[in-house]
Design a protein around this nucleic acid. Sequence first.
DNA 1: TTGTACGCGTTATCAT
DNA 2: ATGATAACGCGTACAA
Lengths: 343, 343
Amino acid sequence: MEKHSLKTIAQKLGISVATVSKALNDYKDISAATKKKVKDLAEELNFVPDSVAKSLRAKQSRLIGFIAPDLLHHFFFNILSGVLKVAQEKDYYVIVASSEDNMENEIRQLHLLVNKRVDGILLALSDNTLDYGHVNNVLQNDTPLVLYDKVSKAVKCSKVVINDRKAAQMATQHLIDIGCHKIAEVRGHFNALTAIDRFIGYRNTLRDNGIPYKREIVFEANGPTINDGIAIADRIFEHKDNINGILCHNDLLAIGIIIRLNELGVKIPEEIAILGFSDSPYTKITQPSLTTIKQHGHEIGRKACEILIEEIEAKVEKRPFKLKTIEVPIELIKRKSTSKSLT
Amino acid sequence: MEKHSLKTIAQKLGISVATVSKALNDYKDISAATKKKVKDLAEELNFVPDSVAKSLRAKQSRLIGFIAPDLLHHFFFNILSGVLKVAQEKDYYVIVASSEDNMENEIRQLHLLVNKRVDGILLALSDNTLDYGHVNNVLQNDTPLVLYDKVSKAVKCSKVVINDRKAAQMATQHLIDIGCHKIAEVRGHFNALTAIDRFIGYRNTLRDNGIPYKREIVFEANGPTINDGIAIADRIFEHKDNINGILCHNDLLAIGIIIRLNELGVKIPEEIAILGFSDSPYTKITQPSLTTIKQHGHEIGRKACEILIEEIEAKVEKRPFKLKTIEVPIELIKRKSTSKSLT
DNA sequence: TTGTACGCGTTATCAT
DNA sequence: ATGATAACGCGTACAA
């Protein structure tokens, strides 16, 4: 089965390439008879137009670049699946790349995608990205770009986010409602806006409930893994008397903490209640199961991709497009790790 | 920042397009002086050659299509990360698509990728793929394709697999070695070669150890989820007296079984030992932690991508290429769910 | 109703 | 050392 082009069809039929092209695209000025002739032969030869040539002419690649900070967290898979869903519906292809949570790599991937002439880019900023020149370059280069999850105010583009402040507020309030008044926070470093917003939500909620904020029970993890959680748990254990609830920025950290506290004989949730972020599948398996803030990754992916495609198509049709920031709702999923009902 | 082409550079410099192209590509027959002139201006204008036009001429898109049966299993993420790694090194882009474990979708995705003129395709067959015409079409279409993980003998192409028979043999032998002689098997349906091979490994190992095979303790799960495992556990419980070890084809199923058996008060591993496949991150979290066969997804991805690119480049240089089948080693990871030492 | 001619941006070949 | 030309495959304004 060799590859055929308009030319081969034209030759076999003894007509011009232009006619073949028009026939296949149902131009009105082609007779029904030739249309049929052409289409039949195309069918028979299994002809498909060369999308590269098409892209060259149309100045559209139908390619979308998707950059994730890592491919380890379940969360980004959920997002990717949402992206693929929408892209497929709208007839776009998705190129996947990982920045490995590293700014240089982020820059490199962005360059590669722009050079590949993708029609648009979906990006979650790496936690180590502190300067946004490379992202703004892409925008100035007139390539539509949508930030998702990890965003920055220093970039003027559409964004899809979760309201981290509100999420942390819901989480903290939940802990307070079940009777915790000594609530520790476990988070990553402050580069990411996400971490800052959650911290603010946490702190404000304490304030609104008349609970003093105590710096000594806020812990900063080295990384987002189970082992980092285990390490933190030992430090929490030292402050055991000052803590009866933990707001943890990340499910994996929370799981590590649960594992270690179990080993140390601390009763969860009776002595210390704990709550995570992400609703990763792990949360159902831990002992006890983990209360968590669900972030609806699939939905984030869908929305981000939808907006991006809208923007791409607006650009093609030279319509103006106004930037949007969409907030995807979060959800508190209550499980056993916060199931005590103290008074 | 507008987009520039060779033409704009040529005009600004008052020289021909051909010269500009040659200068940028370091042709020997261009004077050092003009080379410098051209390169400086290109730099200044932030010129990047249009990869679409390049592809059109070179008949190479530098695009690789990656089709996974689903994007839920951690395993495929590992594979994807291996693929991305190699692709990046060799300067290829990866388009990701999911067949959703559904043959029609697999066909559709394959078509789309071929139409997009990808240079090659990485495919894991869906469990519901029973006929391979569509895959063979791709090969006849002269698009290099490598099957990974889920493969079929009915397709003549390079393959990257794990030796499922051997894996099941290792697993079964391990159960026997720790003293289990009543070993149940839990698997999915038999469409997938994988399931068949594991079954053969299981059965042969029983035979080699003089243990009779009993059909009534082989269970077929409806799907690969935790809930399916929970359902199976109830059936296992009915046969409790005839089972003291479980070979489970899938970590999620195993986790479901553990959860339910815990609830039913069955002691693991003392009364029943259990073992899974995949080394998903969950395995460290269950109570007890789960012994498993690690499949090195990252390595599968790397190898598959390497072979594919070799084949692509052989094709470009019109060298012959001989198909390979690579076996990625598996590993038995011992954890607490099989830690008894009976005699 | 059909065909001619050109352009998209690049590179290879052949003249100059 | 440089440039004119053609070609990759497609779509379209314009001419016939």
